[in-house]
Design a protein around this nucleic acid. Sequence first.
DNA 1: TACGATTTGACAATGATTCTCACTCTGAGA
DNA 2: TCTCAGAGTGAGAATCATTGTCAAATCGTA
Lengths: 136, 136
Amino acid sequence: MTTRRPTRRPTRQQQAVAAMLEQTGAFASAQSVHARLREAGETVGLATVYRTLQALADAGEVDVLRTDDGEAVYRACEPGHHHHLVCRSCGRTVEVEGPAVETWTDRVAAEHGFTEVTHTLEIFGTCTSCTGTHSR
Amino acid sequence: MTTRRPTRRPTRQQQAVAAMLEQTGAFASAQSVHARLREAGETVGLATVYRTLQALADAGEVDVLRTDDGEAVYRACEPGHHHHLVCRSCGRTVEVEGPAVETWTDRVAAEHGFTEVTHTLEIFGTCTSCTGTHSR
DNA sequence: TACGATTTGACAATGATTCTCACTCTGAGA
DNA sequence: TCTCAGAGTGAGAATCATTGTCAAATCGTA
């Protein structure tokens, strides 16, 4: 019942999606994952890519965030709560932790009587490799 | 204190959209703004609502963020950089400031060589009015 | 090896957002 | 006041990510 994990089979397709995320390292959209898999010769349906990414996200094995235009992007991440420092040019991502921020958000929320507090925090910038590169 | 900014906004439609946002107080999607305007008897095209909201956002007169499902939501806000404490049940929103967070993000980004740093931070919770109310 | 449940994938459907383009409005100048 | 040009509008088409559908493929197990 509660701990009744639905039988999940490690299929070739799901492994391919997970592997692609691992090797990419940056945030990638479902569409781009699908495109790259196809390039790499892996035959995986688009719907399956979406389903797998959602399953991975639900399982907490990947992090999800939204681009400015609302597209969902996924990234294989270390487990546990953390935030991201993302290069807006090349997508290179660094996972960062900020205990002070966690306590601050909780305190602010509590001051206003909010409970069950969660938060999102992402940092965007231009990384060293891209600083001089005005390649757009 | 409805200060009239010199931002060009002379048309009835644009004023209607801005006014609706003001009176709503919470974050609202373009679709819902359009629906409410229609209910209120205002005739404004959907495309115009989108255009106006984007213009307001570009002008910094409203804040934009994305819901979990990627929908863009807008809210009339005080000028200047701030963050939001949003009730995930009723949408009530409190604007908060955290100078410590600003400096932290800048420092972390700098440590990793990132420049032109920006960040997003939103806090979600259940407000006092909604705490006992499991009305969903 | 056969069976049943799970997973897949091609395609349709959805829904938010953007684009198109003819029409309307407004303001400046004649 | 009249005229013209350009900004603004809106109905509907187009776009695009995402989700739903469902028959066929696949896997674990008896």
